[in-house]
């Protein structure tokens, strides 16, 4: 398989959120604004990239029996780095993402990629896989966030977009809006899939 496929599969064919239903907690929790979504996406991508590379580097020396705890330690290390750096340099983002920054540790996308891909493939492929999956995750988060922020508060990236006559659909910013928007997005992806296979 050409290496470019490893990169692009994360967007659509194996989109971690819409197709594999992984990493749902942060997708729901921080998609109330585009800024939060991109911030979370970038943080998760960084962790995914680093953990994929390290896991792939040491894959031959890791005893099978304790590979999961080792992966978890590696992931937790990079998550803590992100957590500390964000607290020091982007305190506002750090505050609005709250406990979902340390919770990147249990984001199943990351452990899933370490186990399913990086533990078995070369460093270059693992790097591309991490990058593609990370961007795919960010894309999914941002898609949900754009809908929720635009319709729920009439803003995008914090700037008012919809005119003054627009009455925001407050429900979309509240927790139920996250479930409804994500549900419809997954449905949309299923629908697109069905159309492709039947056509």
């Amino acid at each position: 398989m050409p290496i470019s496929n490893e990169f692009f599969k994360g967007f659509y064919k194996e989109n971690p959120v819409f197709k594999l239903a992984l990493g749902l907690c942060p997708t729901l929790a921080v998609s109330n604004s585009l800024q939060n979504a991109v911030g979370m996406g970038a943080a998760a991508t960084f962790v995914l990239l680093c953990s994929n590379v390290i896991v792939s580097l040491i894959r031959k020396g890791v005893p099978k029996k304790i590979r999961i705890p080792i992966y978890i330690v590696i992931i937790a290390t990079f998550v803590t780095i992100v957590d500390l750096v964000m607290a020091g340099f982007a305190p506002d983002l750090h505050k609005s993402l709250g406990i979902f920054v340390p919770l990147i540790v249990v984001n199943c996308v990351i452990l899933g990629r370490a186990e399913a891909f990086a533990g078995k493939n070369s460093v270059a492929y693992s790097f591309i896989d991490g990058l593609g999956m990370g961007i795919g995750f960010t894309f999914a988060l941002s898609a949900v966030a754009v809908v929720r922020e635009l319709l729920g508060s009439g803003k995008l990236w914090g700037f008012p977009i919809m005119g003054s006559g627009f009455e925001p659909v407050l429900l979309l910013i509240l927790p139920p809006g996250a479930f409804l928007t994500l549900g419809l997005f997954v449905g949309l992806f299923n629908w697109l899939d069905n159309k492709r296979t039947t056509a």
């Binding site: 927790p175 479930f179 549900g183």
Partner: peptide
């Protein structure tokens, strides 16, 4: 509806419960 079967409808239900 077929595209909503499984996970999507579960999310929509969760949305209603969340309300």
């Amino acid at each position: 509806p077929k595209p909503l079967k499984g996970i999507p409808i579960a999310f929509l239900m969760a949305g209603l419960m969340s309300i």
